[in-house]
Structures are given as C-alpha cells and as structure tokens.
C-alpha cells in the first residue's frame, strides 16, 4: 500500500477518535449559561480597564445578570449609551450619569514649584512617595514620575516635559478611575465634564498652613477663605487649609477665580474673560471723564 494512504487512514482514525471524545465531553459537561451575559459582554467596550470595580468586562456582565439590577454598576468608558443598551437588554432602567473626566489637582509645574533635589531612583511615584517629599519639596504635590500615565489604558494621559505634570486628553479620557487609584498622593479626581467641557477646580492638595504651603510653591492654596466668602452657592469648603469646590453645587459663575490670591483655582475651556475688556473700557471712560 502507498505510504500516503496509510498516513491518511491513520490520521482520519485519530481525528474520528478525538471528535468522539470532544462530542462526549461537550454533552456530558455542558454548562448552562445565561445567554444575556454574552450579549452584554458584546455591548461593553472590551478594554478590561477595571474601572467598574470588576476584573474585566465579562465579570461586569456576569455581575449585572447575577444582581439583575444596575445599582452601583456603571461602565464609565461605555458611558450612558452603552448603559442604556444594556438596560434595554435587561428590561431595567439605566441611571443617566453626567459625563466625567479626570482632573489633575496640582499646578506645581517646574516654574511654580522649582525642583530642589536631584532624584535619580526608579521612575515610580509609589516608590518616590515613601522615600521623600518630592523634588519640589511639596509633600502633597505631583511627583511627576508618571504612575498615572503608565496605568492609563486609553492613551488619555501624557507627561508634559516642560511642566513636569501629567496632562489629561479630554477626548480620550473615559473616567475609568485607574489613575485615581495609581496616584499615591490622591491628586487626581474624577469630576463632571461640565457643560461645553467647562470646569472650575482647585488645583492644589496642600493641607499645610498657608505660610508653609507658600514656601515651596507659588500657586498653593493657603486656605484664606476668600473664595468661600465670594461663593453664593455654598459650593466651596475649606478643610485643613485647603479649599475644595463641590462640582455638584458649583454653577460655574467663576466669581471665585479672580479673588484667589495665589491663582490656585483653575478654569478650563472658558472663553477669555470679558472682565479684562470691561476694565479696559472703564479705564478709558475714566480717562475721558478726567480729561
């Protein structure tokens, strides 16, 4: 007999035996799974970012089906659209959430908080944090070694080499919260994206008294209460010499921004303020009157 025929027959026989085993195992050990898990997992982004608190997207889908509710379960990268689709699948109501984004609550750039030490250990904020207070000397500020950038799964962060601070790319950020967990100094916060992406926040985490806070950084919050007095909506609170703007209450009136003596309140994506123009106009009016 031709060797090729022998090989063909032997391999066919082996294939038949394995097919039989696979068929038997499939029937015998069949696991009944809720088909909705697969359907939900298909709807999810599949980034396995862990922002929902589960190890991956499939675990999140399993949790939804198991709990049969959407309480405290939200896929930040998918957003409201994905959650609405899942809610429709499950015949549930999805809670509408405002879009959110990560903000860096530190403005200790190389200029504002000049480096005093030369750190040449490993590039890890977690390590530098228990070693020393940071090369700028601020024990609350950004260490600038990029643990948040390394953990971001959506390419939404990068380190600015000039300022030495991380920058969030708003369009890519899904508010999954991984950078919040990675930061050893809790600088990063997930805040509402705001109408037209406009936001106001205090870009400082320094809890020291004003005198000491100012030593290392020129834009540190000194807890002077000026913004609290200015705010009509009770949105600003001072705790241990540090102001915090509650984004739920803030109406983005921006009255607190000009009163801050250290300019630590940051406004994002606002058009250039008209106040400057008004001041100019007033000045010229006064000039005219004087003349």
């Amino acid at each position: 007999m031709e060797p090729i025929i022998i090989a063909f027959l032997v391999l066919s026989l082996i294939a038949a035996i394995f097919a039989a085993i696979i068929y038997f195992v499939d029937k015998q050990f069949h696991v009944d799974e809720d088909p909705r898990i697969d359907l939900i997992a298909d709807k999810l982004p599949g980034a396995n970012c862990g922002g929902c608190g589960y190890a991956g997207c499939r675990n999140f889908a399993e949790a939804i089906v198991k709990n049969n509710s959407l309480d405290n379960l939200f896929c930040a990268p998918g957003g409201n659209k994905t959650m609405a689709e899942i809610a429709q699948l499950m015949n549930l109501e999805a809670e509408e959430k405002k879009p959110q984004v990560a903000v860096i609550r530190c403005n200790g750039t190389n200029e504002n908080c000049p480096p005093k030490h030369d750190y040449n250990g490993i590039e890890s904020c977690g390590f530098a944090n228990f070693l020393f207070a940071g090369d700028g000397g601020c024990a609350y500020g950004c260490l600038g070694l990029g643990d948040c950038v390394a953990t971001c799964k959506f390419d939404a962060m990068y380190m600015d080499p000039i300022t030495g601070l991380p920058v969030v790319i708003e369009d890519n950020c899904t508010a999954c919260g991984n950078c919040v967990k990675a930061c050893p100094r809790n600088i990063i916060e997930i805040r509402n994206k705001g109408p037209k992406n406009r936001r106001i926040y205090v870009a400082c985490m320094n809890k020291e008294k004003g005198v000491y806070a100012k030593v290392n950084c020129s834009v540190a919050c000194i807890g002077c209460n000026a913004c609290v007095k200015e705010c009509k909506f009770d949105a600003i609170k001072i705790e241990s010499f540090l102001a915090y703007i509650d984004y739920q209450k803030c109406t983005l009136c921006r009255k607190c921004v000009p009163v801050c003596p250290t300019n630590c309140i940051v406004e994002v994506n606002f058009p250039i303020k008209k106040k400057a123009n008004i001041d100019l106009a007033n000045d010229s009016n006064q000039n005219i009157e004087n003349n």
């Binding site: 250990g121 490993i122 890890s124 977690g126």
Partner: peptide, 13 residues
Amino acid sequence: RPLLDYIRLGKNK
C-alpha cells in the same frame, strides 16, 4: 540595575 529600589517598592506593596 536599581534592584533595591524595585524590591523596596515591592515590599511596600
């Protein structure tokens, strides 16, 4: 190699 730096980070975690 900064071996001890990494080991100290690891010990901490």
